[in-house]
Amino acid sequence: MVTVKDLEKRPELFNPGHRACAGCGFPQAVRLVLKASKNPVVVSVATGCLEVTTTVFPQTSWGCSYIHNAFENAAATISGVEAAYRGLKRFGHLTDQKFHFIAFGGDGGTYDIGFQALSGALERGHNFLYVCYDNEAYANTGIQRSGATPKGASTTTTPAGKIGSGKNQFRKDLTAIAAAHRIPYAAQGSITHWKDLVAKAEKGLDVEGPAFLNILAPCRLSWGTAPEETIDLVRHAVDSCFWPLYEVEKGKWKLNYKPREKKSYIEWLKRQRRFRHLFNGRNKELLLELQAEVDRRWEELLEKCGAK
């Protein structure tokens, strides 16, 4: 496992001065993933907050080669870059040059609109790491629901109202869906468990073939929390088993972290403005249902990982 000292020595490919909000989760995610690289990196970034806050012309935060194509095609774009690399080798160029190919997308660009391109690229077996920074909403366009938004969250397209109690559906389990492509490596990480995250990014970059890494990275505007709470909220999400840390390596499921004491998911919800309406006394049953689903998915995961 890496140490802070190790990380310090590694080149900084994601530079300060970007325009992400104070308390935004993805800068840590991106920085840590890039710290896992050993070779020159090419990143493909989907439209979204990461893209708009890091490349306001004529400035860029990226200390590696970067391409933004569109919202739904980060995976297809990196497929083309990786294909160019393979093609060039076949033509006798770049013979000794190694690269890492990484695609970054928000949950909207990954779970929803970019899902097909992601699935296609995973199935085709390109040698790349796809990283989803999951802030559980379309933050860039003003906090609309996504396939990653937890049930009960109030967003601007699932607003809590006189009869509505936020999003009506449970979130899509994208990490498991990615793993179901039988790719060499799929994992879930978090910015709080940074050693684990860097190790996962290293594995994802080292394996031959596609890898998928899903990272919980809060958006404090969407979640309705104070900037200084971000890290603690992620820790709470992990400790409540809502965001378990696990990996699927060559089809083998492995749990990377089991909280000594499982924290309440309901308490996690209570800390965020997007769930405030659930605590008005009229949603007690819904709250229990939400807690029960988190528990059910956790048990299922323990089973898959043989960690019961």
């Binding site: 194509n69 095609n73 774009t77 083309g80 294909a83 393979r86 060039l88 391109a117």
Partner: peptide
């Protein structure tokens, strides 16, 4: 031919991949 052929899953991805490749100087 030595071409790397990418049999993508849609035309949207076809041109997206071609944009990625052309941006890679080929």
């Amino acid at each position: 031919v030595r071409t790397e052929f990418v049999p993508v899953e849609s035309e949207h991805s076809a041109l997206s991949a071609v944009v990625g490749a052309a941006s890679s100087g080929v």
